[in-house]
Amino acid sequence: MNAVRQWSERLIGAVPIIGLLALWQAIAMSGLAPPALLPTPGVVFARFFQQLGSPAFLDHAAVTLYRLFAGFMIAVVMGVTLGIAAVGSRAFAAIVTPVVRVLAPVPKIALYPALTLTLGYDDASKIALVIADAMFPILLATYQGASAVEPKLAWSARAAGVSPVRTLFTVVLPAAMPSVLTGARIGLIISCIVVFLAEMITSTDGLGHLLMRAARNFQTVDMFVPLIAISMLGLMLNALFNLVRRRLLRGFPEEK
């Protein structure tokens, strides 16, 4: 019964995606844009699957995945640590809050030229940009979630003789996990976008670089392939994320 419903839900979810592809197909065939500039989805996907067999293309995808994943993981560690510390210590919160308020709205992409100058054109500058952008939603979600944890959970630990710091990490953080993971999910999506953007601006490798190279050479089919690739990477990471999430949130009430 459940499996049937799950599959029917997935089928319903596929409808808008098929609709989008159909719209793309319709525009491509309508003659609004010449076929040389706007290829049909069929041609693009054919090229995408062909590229999956190309080691050079896979290398570019791997580079992007590495930057994305490294940046995201560091952002999670930093965001969660800073968020929890701010809940645990008023003094620390007093220091962090104004910094967050000032830095969070800054378009981090504007820092990218400075990052490339200081960290170079390789991985470091891109990872730094991903961290800068992905960290804030994770930090804010952790702070909000941990602040809202029922105090009696922490009291129960403190009464058992557990120190305030240990209580923070063994009770408050796990109790805030649903909120932390919501922030992390947003951070993951931002990471996908930002790593691609950074590679489009200045890079010698990665999916974003492939897109720009194709665009400069009027290779319109190859221009769309990296987009499909980053979307697929996002899907894969999201599936992985859900796996981790289900494991971490076992025992919490279901959301639906």
């Binding site: 009696k152 009291w155 796990p174 996990m177 971490l248 025992g251």
Partner: peptide
């Protein structure tokens, strides 16, 4: 406590 305050993840 009235609210039990059990750790839901344990």
């Amino acid at each position: 406590f009235q609210e039990f305050a059990l750790f839901p993840w344990k």
